[in-house]
Simulated assay, not measured.
Amino acid sequence: MLDQDFIYTLLLTGKLALITTSILIIIGIPVAYWLSYSRFKLKFIAETLISMPMVLPPTVMGYYLLVAFSPENAFGDFLQKYCDVRLAFSFQGIVIASIIANLPFMIQPLQNGFSALNDDLRQASYTMGKSKIVTLFKVLIPNIKKSVITGIALTFAHCIGEFGIVIMVGGNIPKETRIA
């Protein structure tokens, strides 16, 4: 017979991965689109910041997020005083930390998919009077379906396997932040 705490831990892990992946789909598509088609001169800074979680050790990132989320710090104190939110050692905190840690795993496949598309598709849609939003959802996303699936799979799998950042930010509180 499986232990109830173990089952709850597995369910919490799945919940974290589903929430993180869902939020990153919503964030990732517009950010990847912007990174692919923008001519902003300092775009490389955004790309560098997005890629940072891939090269930083998770425990280091987790430590700095824990420091930022702590009520002893200005950001954590502001959140607690004015928003009545405490991110350190909470499920909301590990969701935010997980979103930050998994950002490159969603955005990079999407950005590569957008960049690989022939720009004639986008231009033809605009020529036919379609807006950027319609072009994005009706023309571009269907043509990068494999990149979307790859981003979802990578994000979900990395979120399930990520331990360092979650243990640093969330601790190991049973039925609240203990994940598998």
Rank of each mutant, 00 (worst) to 15 (best):
D3W: 05
D3P: 00
Q4L: 13
L12W: 02
K15M: 11
L18F: 11
S22K: 00
L24H: 04
Y33S: 09
Y33E: 06
S36E: 04
Y37G: 02
S38T: 11
S38A: 08
S38I: 09
R39W: 02
F40Q: 06
K41Y: 03
L49K: 04
I50N: 02
P53H: 04
Y63T: 02
Y64C: 07
L65R: 05
F69W: 13
A74E: 07
F75M: 08
Q80Y: 13
Y82H: 14
V85M: 11
R86T: 15
F89Y: 15
G93F: 06
V95P: 00
I96C: 09
S98W: 00
S98T: 06
A101C: 08
P104Y: 02
I107T: 01
Q111E: 14
Q111A: 11
G113Q: 13
L117I: 08
L117F: 10
L121W: 10
R122T: 09
Y126L: 15
T127R: 02
I133S: 14
P142D: 12
P142T: 12
K145P: 06
V148R: 13
I152A: 04
A153N: 07
L154T: 00
L154F: 01
F156K: 01
H158S: 08
E162S: 04
F163S: 12
G164I: 02
V166W: 00
M168T: 00
G170I: 11
E176I: 14
E176A: 11
R178L: 11
I179K: 01
